[in-house]
Structures are given as structure tokens and as C-alpha cells.
Nucleic acid binder design. Sequence first.
DNA 1: GTGATTGCAAAAAGTTTGCAAACTC
DNA 2: GAGTTTGCAAACTTTTTGCAATCAC
Lengths: 150, 150
Amino acid sequence: MPNLPKKFNDCLREKGLRLTTQRAVIARLALSRASHFTADDLLLWAREKDKGISRATVYRTLSLLTDLELLEGLDFGDGRLCYEPAEGRNHHDHLVCRQCGSITEFHCEAIEELQCEVADKLDFKVEHHSLKIYGICKDCSRRTEDDERR
Amino acid sequence: MPNLPKKFNDCLREKGLRLTTQRAVIARLALSRASHFTADDLLLWAREKDKGISRATVYRTLSLLTDLELLEGLDFGDGRLCYEPAEGRNHHDHLVCRQCGSITEFHCEAIEELQCEVADKLDFKVEHHSLKIYGICKDCSRRTEDDERR
DNA sequence: GTGATTGCAAAAAGTTTGCAAACTC
DNA sequence: GAGTTTGCAAACTTTTTGCAATCAC
């Protein structure tokens, strides 16, 4: 089990907040994920470690971690928020498959640069951005071709 | 008051659907907007024309218009969907001001092309995409500078 | 007249909040 | 001990749905 990032501890102390066992469990799980997850996922994982953890505490901790910029919120438009660790990862965008719901990350430096250029031209100060490409993923289109061949 | 697009009428007939007064009121209002709006905005406008229109009918008509691709749904991540007319407009992306909430449209052909290239490389069939740049708009940063000058 | 559509109210689904009890520092 | 945090349940927000009454064709 990875340690809690020093920053989490520091931020808590700095703001006079307390490191409770629930916060530790939830933060450790959330910050060690390799990819995005929902509040509900996190609640289930947390309850494996500690039966009593409540949904409210998960939501409160998620919002704390997002405020500290240790997590990033992602909205894939399915009516609930996803989260992923923000530290130690490069920015990336997402391909969302409309058929199987899978989400693939990608990164394109040229797109990032163009975005900044465009925003600059409009005197808009960029803080962050979100690019999602919706369509059909490799596996699903292969599956569809197979079906049609029959 | 603009006429209903012929396509709306045709699609209704084709699918055996009926042109009710409520649908006409709602569709006319929705399709004549220059920019994005919420279901609740539309309900208020519709009720100015016809007191009795229900929220459910607004939602049902929005979903009908979206299916017919006369409206496009936009998710700015504030927990509710926005819509804007999809016909007769070019695709565009959005700058979202974190301070005043204003939304500015822009279009960059080079970014569009790069998106297709990236997706192609990953064997992903693009259907549509959504690019949102979050930050501070021209007016808000000017306002902040003025405040600091005092 | 027949079957689509409406309005209403209730249901969903995800998230937030008030409060008393429990816990951290 | 003081003050934060928790769990619970209820509240909230946006959107969807079941159903009987109504309306378009």
C-alpha cells in the first residue's frame, strides 16, 4: 500500500484539518489508482478495508482531494463524475467508446500548443482543458466487422 | 417567429409522430436560439407562450430534437445539460470562463485535423468530439487588473 | 376512433447537508 | 477539552417514467 503523499499531510495540517482513519483509507485508495474511477467505486474499495465508511465521507474526501489538486475530476457525460490522480501524471485527453464505454487516454503535444495559441488570440487565460473524442473503439469496430461477415 | 424547419415536420411524419401545439412551441423556441440554453430556460420561455406546458414535455421534446440531430447536447460540467441548434452551424468548441461563467465559441481547423489523425492512429472511429478550454476570459482578467491597480 | 402525447406526480440517480455522537489533536 | 469529522438519514437537483386523460390524424 503506497504511502500518503506528503502533500496531503502538509495540506491537512496547514488548514487545521485532521488525518482520520477514514480519510487515510480513502485517500490512499484514490491516489494509488492508475486510471479513472467513480465515487461509488471508491466507496466499495474503501468498505473492503473498513466496513463502516459512509458514502458521505467518500464524497467529502473526494472534494477535499480535488481542492488540494491531488485528484482531477473528469466528466464523461454519463451523469456522474469520474476522478483520477492528478499528481505525477502528464496531462492527457480521452477517447470515449460509445459502444462499450471504454476510455482510452492519449496525448498530442501539437493539439495542446494549438489550443494555447487559439486561446491567446482571444485573450483567454487557459487554466486547463478537456478534450474528448467520442466514437467507436478498435475492439468494437472489429467486433462489428466480424458480425457483418457472418 | 421563424418557421419550423421542414426537416422537423418530415421526420415527425416519417416516424408516425404528431405535431402537437406543445411540440411546435418548444421546437420553434429551441431551434431559433443563437446560443446554448438549458432545459429549464426552455421551459420558462415555453410557458410564456403557453402556461400549461409541462417540464416533462420539454424534456421529451429536447430528446426528440437531439435524436433528429436538430439540437446538440453540450455538457459544461455543471450538473445539467445545455443544448444548442445543430443545423446550419459549423462545428465549434468552447472557452468556459471559470469566473463569470461566460462561454465563447471558437473554431480551429488545424485542431480538428490533428484530432482525426490521432484517433486514426489508434484505430478509433471518430463520431464527434468536445473540446473545452477552461480559464479566465478577456473581460474578467481586465476586471481583475483594474481591481489590483486600485 | 385509435394510438400518440400530455400533465401530473412519483421515481431515479448522483451528490450534498444538518445534526448528534465520536474522534483527533 | 475544543473543535473537527463521521455516519445516518433526509434533502436536493436534474432528468426520467407510469398512468389516466386528452388530442392529432
